[in-house]
Write a protein that binds this DNA or RNA. Structure first.
Length: 410
DNA sequence: TCTGGGGTCCTAGGACCC
DNA sequence: TCTGGGGTCCTAGGACCC
């Protein structure tokens, strides 16, 4: 067995860097990517110029502005990031036979056994960074080592615009001085429990009695400890089909207005339906999410449908039905969301197949093959969006409010 | 000045079937 | 009249990731 060589490539301040790329006047300036609403929301991404003032991801926007009053706030544009992601993925794919994306801005690359072809790992790291910069004008950092954990921690340690290769055999020593909070898989909850046990560094975790970790944290604890010792055997696996597609929206102000909430749910459902059809997927399970203004309480209710769907109205009906079952109308609603899961390929030949027409909803199977419904409203909307973008057209029922944030590429 | 949006994985109980 | 054990699916919630 050859010694594993795994790289972790991580785009630097991805959303903020894309904003600076698309709007050259923002280059070199503190940029905060958040929502339209400066009242509610957190920082999704901050440029390094903004980070110099103490701004970081997940910080409330208002707090970020207080730290960096001259920062420029731009809205999140998921569609645009997905577009750039597709471009960057093509570069990643050239450098490794197996690539596992982890979100839009990072990926693991298994380059084991490619040394004869691509050169030593350190050179691959530099070449990959250079290729991304040359072809996209975006900066990335690349870390590497014998496992996913070491690769990821290395890319984090060399940010921004760095490369770092941890030599095989030195990983345990390199890891041990780091704080446990820096270890992927240890969030706020686990961190607090570990500190209460006197575990503060990765070295502490590596040396802690395994049986105690097992009794308190179960399998997860044992795996974390193995990783802390440099024993992380998780394989780099290529992305399969998506497991879920979701959309959610936090309102500028909490609302108990049933008509308003229903219209928002329809808009969210349309977005999820559109993305299902784009991906050629149907969903059997629909989950509605309701967050109350009171106490930030979050409720989820799901239903598995008799037939999988990619139809906007079917998704909306299922989701709204679940909202009604969970929502006490005396509570003002802060957020609504809808998620499609239990996904499978829709088996349609093409979105615009003139013969069968695209599938709206799986209906009764004929000879075991789901039959497509004839083209309807969804397909008319999709066809317009295909040419002019998602924002180009919307339902009359949704015209009462301004459109929510863009999912399109512009 | 409270707390976005889009994901994955895990646990645990109950239904249901064999 | 009392009550097995395994497997799978569904639902709700939680931790964690970027």
């Amino acid at each position: 067995m050859p010694t594993p060589a795994i790289l972790h490539v991580d785009m630097d301040a991805f959303f903020a860097s894309v904003a600076q790329l698309d709007h050259p006047e923002l280059a070199g300036k503190p940029v905060i990517v958040g929502g339209h609403s400066t009242q509610r929301g957190v920082v999704a991404s901050a440029s390094y110029e903004a980070r110099a003032h103490g701004v970081h991801s997940a910080m409330p926007i208002a707090q970020a502005i207080a730290l960096c009053p001259h920062a420029i706030c731009v809205p999140v544009a998921m569609g645009r990031y997905r577009q750039v992601n597709r471009q960057v993925r093509q570069i990643w794919d050239r450098f490794a036979p197996v690539v596992e994306p982890a979100g839009l801005d990072e990926a693991y690359l298994d380059i084991t056994g490619t040394e004869a072809l691509l050169g030593p790992p350190k050179k691959v790291e530099s070449d990959l960074r250079a290729a991304i910069l040359a072809e996209t004008n975006l900066s990335a950092s690349v870390g590497g080592g014998t496992s996913k954990l070491v690769a990821k921690m290395a890319s984090r340690a060399c940010k921004p615009a760095g490369v770092l290769w941890i030599e095989p055999g030195t990983e345990r020593q390199w890891l041990q001085g780091h704080d446990v909070a820096l270890m992927p898989g240890i969030g706020p909850v686990t961190q607090k429990r570990l500190r209460a046990m006197g575990v503060n560094t990765i070295g502490d975790l590596a040396g802690f009695p395994t049986d105690i970790l097992a009794s308190r944290f179960g399998v997860h604890g044992v795996e974390l400890q193995a990783a802390a010792c440099g024993r992380d055997t998780r394989a780099v696996t290529p992305a399969g089909l998506a497991k879920s597609i979701s959309a959610e929206e936090t309102f500028d102000a909490d609302s108990s207005d049933r008509d308003f909430l229903h219209r928002r749910m329809l808009d969210l459902s349309c977005e999820v339906g559109y993305r299902l059809r784009q991906a050629g997927l149907v969903a059997a399970t629909i989950t509605a999410k309701v967050r109350l203004g009171r106490g930030f309480e979050t409720i989820e209710r799901s239903v598995t449908l008799p037939a999988a769907t990619q139809d906007d109205d079917t998704i909306c009906r299922a989701a709204w039905d679940r909202v009604i079952s969970a929502w006490d109308r005396s509570d003002a609603v802060r957020l609504l969301g809808v998620r499609a899961s239990n996904l499978r390929p829709s088996l349609q030949l093409s979105l615009f197949d003139p013969a069968g027409g695209p599938a709206g909803q799986e209906s009764r199977p004929v000879d075991g093959i789901p039959r497509s419904l004839p083209a309807g409203l969804n397909e008319v909307l999709d066809a317009v969006r295909e040419r002019f973008g998602y924002e180009a057209i919307t339902r009359g029922a949704l015209l009462k409010e301004p459109r929510r944030q863009s999912i399109s590429g512009d």
